[in-house]
Design a protein around this nucleic acid. Structure first.
Lengths: 169, 169
DNA sequence: GGGCGCATGTAATGAGTTACATGATTGA
DNA sequence: TCAATCATGTAACTCATTACATGCGCCC
């Protein structure tokens, strides 16, 4: 449901067409959200069927027409309901990488360390990416700040795992 | 793929039947993994078809027979490949709760604070749950420790958000 | 006799991704 | 002229969950 919330929320601020919505998410939220184009189009059509948005076609020259989506009253209501529900609940994140840690003792410590160092490099790159992220103004700041805090905590944790494994060697 | 990794890894240590695998995960890893019974059965059958595990039937009295799964050589190989791949890559977690934060300004600050306090209560309960979790011996310790570190970082972050919003009021 | 725990599974559904398909415009 | 960007969409597939269905044994 949080992709719907995201799309409705963006449309609430300003009507947009599908491509534009995807572009916005991809360029300003790429470090936190990964919403595929097809998913965006699919969800917009779904919400149109459900009466949360309407669309009007806009054409410029001979290009494929843009379908501009507008929030309806029902959409606004749905948006607020989803927003309240989202804010009021804690949805635990799951860490796919933890499963591997559980079986660390099935590999020689030296190999485990070198594999985890590859993981660390990717994580460090994610940290770097969010540091050089485009300015986070107003309403977007919390999301990005959260991701920063999270990634830094992840990096510190991973370093402590690597350090402990290295000592065992 | 990390559910397969998990099942293969557990079977690598000791052959078990489906119910038993689910029980183990549910009682010793419940704070980190939520694998449904049907999913476990489904994955085990799938991996049997793929040749990673074989099964033997065990019956006690008139109860439904237990299907005990054993790792094959191919399964062992697959396990190690999945393990190396898992350890070597950083798979970013996504936070469904961040979307709501992005639209915080669509509600009066006082309501936002009270909704986030509900979220905080659930998070605090998760922290408490993991503190009183069953002893985490050997190989499981990293997973649980990671979850602890993560949840504590989450709680601190959420408190800082709530504090800032409260000041705005 | 009724409810819980043990033990298995199937069918339908949901949520999202991948790969594919189309076609005009813009810039190197 | 060739690739990238703009702009839309469909079909097939993956992964996992939900809801349903079955049936014995044990204990109160």
């Amino acid at each position: 449901m949080e992709r719907e919330l995201l799309l409705l929320g963006l449309l609430q601020k300003e009507e947009m067409h599908g491509y534009q919505l995807h572009e916005f998410i991809d360029s300003f939220m790429q470090t936190c959200v990964d919403l595929k184009k097809s998913t965006a189009y699919y969800l917009l059509e779904k919400m149109a069927k459900e009466g949360y948005v309407t669309r009007t076609e806009e054409r410029e020259g001979n290009r494929p027409p843009r379908r501009v989506y507008h929030l309806t009253a029902a959409g606004e209501e749905c948006f607020l309901a989803l927003l309240r529900q989202n804010l009021a609940s804690y949805l635990p994140a799951t860490f796919a990488g933890d499963t591997g840690l559980t079986f660390l003792d099935n590999l020689p410590a030296s190999e485990a360390v070198s594999l985890l160092e590859q993981r660390r490099a990717q994580l460090a790159e994610a940290v770097a990416a969010i540091e050089r992220a485009p300015l986070h103004t107003g309403t977007l700041q919390f999301m990005i700040e959260h991701q920063q805090v999270h990634l830094q905590s992840e990096l510190a944790w991973l370093d402590s795992v690597i350090a402990r494994l290295s000592n065992e060697e």
